[in-house]
């Protein structure tokens, strides 16, 4: 097992390196110039001398290979540099937003799992009954409804019915739990519902597959208690694909909730990502892509470890 873990950890390095090369050069290919955007824009008084000075200050006048090497050396020291737009350390820019994004991802995942697993199991057990149909309609509706749209519906509903809106400014949970929940519970519900729809369908189909396995029939033939068969033999095995879906969705939530963040005015990583690309803030975009890549790789790695924990066959292999 230890060998397996080390091997997987070492495999992360070339993957991250590949992402780094790709994002660095992709950003340079995209047209647009942060210096012109910030210091020239629509101004008739912008002077070339000023723009050149700024480019030199940001290191954009240096050869591409030199910029790349400098950046890579920084990454090796875990120094992502400063944002080209704000001049603030990138770690600081990300840290500020990561708390909110992480909390929202955890809340949405909790809501999704709390909905998906019982619903998926019940739907599988009551296959082709009205219960199954109701769960399927609920989950298909979730798949068909973009979370930002549901967010807009929540906001309009609260505005029109209660003349109330969630707080617009983030308060950390440890500062004021009530305010924090008041703000984040709505986006978590909007995102969690769509997320649960994917997981519900996966749980249902996975459970149906497992329930038809020989070992379930054997367990029933042995006269095992049905609840035990379901929880120990069926659900545990059915969880493997569900775990993958839940984990990947979680990784996606860490940086992909752009529109939902916009709708609820959340200061998260998704918005920061979009803004950094729009501003051609190379250093910040590169760091964010590396972060998201790392989250995906790490989550995948964790899922693989959990697979081994859930399924002994993987461990023994």
């Amino acid at each position: 097992m230890a060998k397996y873990i080390v091997k997987r950890l070492l495999l992360m390095i070339p993957t991250l390196l590949g992402v780094a090369v790709l994002i660095f050069f992709l950003m340079r290919v995209v047209p647009g110039d942060i210096v012109e955007l910030r210091f020239a824009g629509e101004s008739a008084f912008a002077q070339k001398e000023n723009l050149d000075k700024e480019r030199a200050r940001l290191g954009l006048d240096r050869p591409l290979w030199e910029q790349f090497v400098t950046w890579m050396l920084g990454i090796l020291r875990l120094d992502f540099g400063t944002s080209m737009w704000t001049g603030a350390p990138i770690i600081e820019e990300i840290k500020l937003r990561a708390t909110l994004s992480f909390q929202l991802a955890v809340m949405a995942t909790a809501i999704a799992v709390a909905l998906a697993i019982p619903l998926g199991v019940v739907a599988a057990l009551k296959q082709d009954t009205w219960v199954d149909y109701a769960v399927r309609i609920f989950s298909i509706a979730g798949l068909a409804t973009p979370s930002f749209w549901l967010g807009i519906v929540f906001i309009l509903g609260m505005l029109i019915i209660f003349k109330w809106l969630p707080p617009m400014v983030y308060t950390p949970f440890w500062v004021d739990p009530w305010q924090n929940m008041l703000q984040l519970v709505w986006p978590a519900l909007a995102v969690g519902y769509r997320y649960s729809a994917v997981a519900t369908r996966m749980t249902r189909s996975s459970m149906l597959e497992v329930l038809r396995e020989d070992y379930i029939r054997t367990a029933r033939a042995k006269g095992l208690w049905e609840k035990l068969i379901l929880s120990r033999h069926a659900l545990k095995n059915a969880m493997l694909p569900v775990l993958t879906v839940v984990a990947l969705e979680f990784a996606f939530l860490m940086g992909g909730l752009v529109v939902t963040e916009q709708v609820f005015n959340l200061n998260g990583l998704g918005m920061l990502f979009v803004e950094s690309v729009a501003r051609r803030d190379y250093t910040l975009t590169q760091a964010l892509v590396m972060l998201v890549a790392f989250v995906f790789i790490f989550v995948n790695f964790t899922v693989d470890l959990m697979y081994a924990w859930i399924d002994p066959r993987i461990r023994f292999r």
């Binding site: 309009l156 505005l159 003349k163 109330w164 809106l165 916009q262 709708v263 005015n265 918005m271 803004e275």
Partner: peptide, 12 residues
């Protein structure tokens, strides 16, 4: 950033 959020904020 979002104008719909700004309108909602003024409205609420």
């Amino acid at each position: 950033k979002d104008s719909a959020a700004q309108v909602a904020a003024v409205r609420a």
